[in-house]
């Protein structure tokens, strides 16, 4: 019977804080055959490999851990970005026409729109026609904002300003969907519009973020006009590396006067 479930031999399922063990360390294996090869394969991916089977089904610890991780991911969707985090980032906050998480999840059409009053605030507080307008949205995963933006946003700005590209006034959008890009672009007319937004949380991480960027974004642009950098997190593309990629892409857009599938970078 398989009992061991960490590579280091830890078997105390009640004392080990199960979901905190990286998947690379989590193992249920009956034999020690080819141990070194096995450990190399485990280390190469956060996917749930090397977990064995009882009959055709999962062992108990693997089955329970899966449920525990899934619950945590579903929970991240419902969390809010605290006002203190928005303040610490030095951003002002606005909200889409959604009034709750539930509305944001079921009404993406409202999650891209602002009230007249909010539009006025954006128009008054932001620089108009910058080279690039960057803003932050909670999207489907609030914890992603605090986990990535403090590293990523200043690095993007520094890289762009070094190239002489002007960056507009940043802000935070609550209950934000990706297509808020279209609405913001129509208000501020930047050359490039970019939203840094929480992705749907997975079981591997509840802190993953994407950047959606478009050249000359408009209300009637196509989805394929977006260029996307996805999977930004400590376990995917690290935020510092993502910042460099995003800056390169933003820089390429006005040069090639395009974004999406047509863009080469």
């Amino acid at each position: 019977m398989s009992r061991a479930f960490t590579l280091s031999g830890k078997t105390d399922i009640l004392g080990c804080n199960l979901t905190a063990i990286p998947m690379q360390e989590f193992s249920e294996r009956d034999s020690d055959e080819n141990k070194e090869v096995y450990e190399q394969y485990k280390k190469a991916t956060p996917a749930r490999v090397g977990i064995g089977h009882t009959g055709p089904r999962y062992h108990t610890a693997a089955a329970l851990r899966f449920q525990a991780d899934q619950y945590s991911a579903a929970n991240a969707v419902q969390m809010e970005v605290p006002e203190s985090v928005v303040k610490k980032l030095g951003l002002f906050e606005i909200q889409t026409r959604c009034s709750s998480k539930y509305e944001m999840l079921t009404r993406p059409d409202l999650g891209r729109l602002f009230s007249e009053e909010t539009k006025k605030i954006i128009s008054e507080r932001c620089v108009h026609e910058p080279d690039v307008q960057i803003f932050i949205g909670d999207g489907l995963c609030s914890p992603a904002v605090e986990a990535n933006v403090p590293t990523m946003y200043p690095a993007i700005c520094a890289a762009l300003e070094y190239e002489g590209i002007s960056v507009g006034t940043p802000f935070f959008v609550r209950y934000c969907r990706v297509n808020t890009v279209r609405t913001v672009a129509e208000l501020l007319h930047p050359k490039v519009t970019c939203v840094l937004i929480g992705e749907r949380p997975g079981m591997l991480t509840s802190q993953s973020m994407s950047a959606y960027m478009a050249y000359n974004a408009r209300y009637d642009m196509l989805e394929s006009d977006y260029t996307v950098v996805a999977n930004i997190s400590s376990v995917g593309m690290p935020p510092a590396e993502a910042a460099a990629n995003i800056a390169d892409i933003i820089k390429a857009m006005p040069e090639q006067k395009t974004s999406g599938y047509g863009l080469k970078y």
Partner: peptide
């Protein structure tokens, strides 16, 4: 078929 049904890239199950 995915490792325990969990997609570590597309973030869905």
């Amino acid at each position: 078929g995915l490792p325990q049904g969990d997609d570590v890239m597309l973030m869905y199950q």
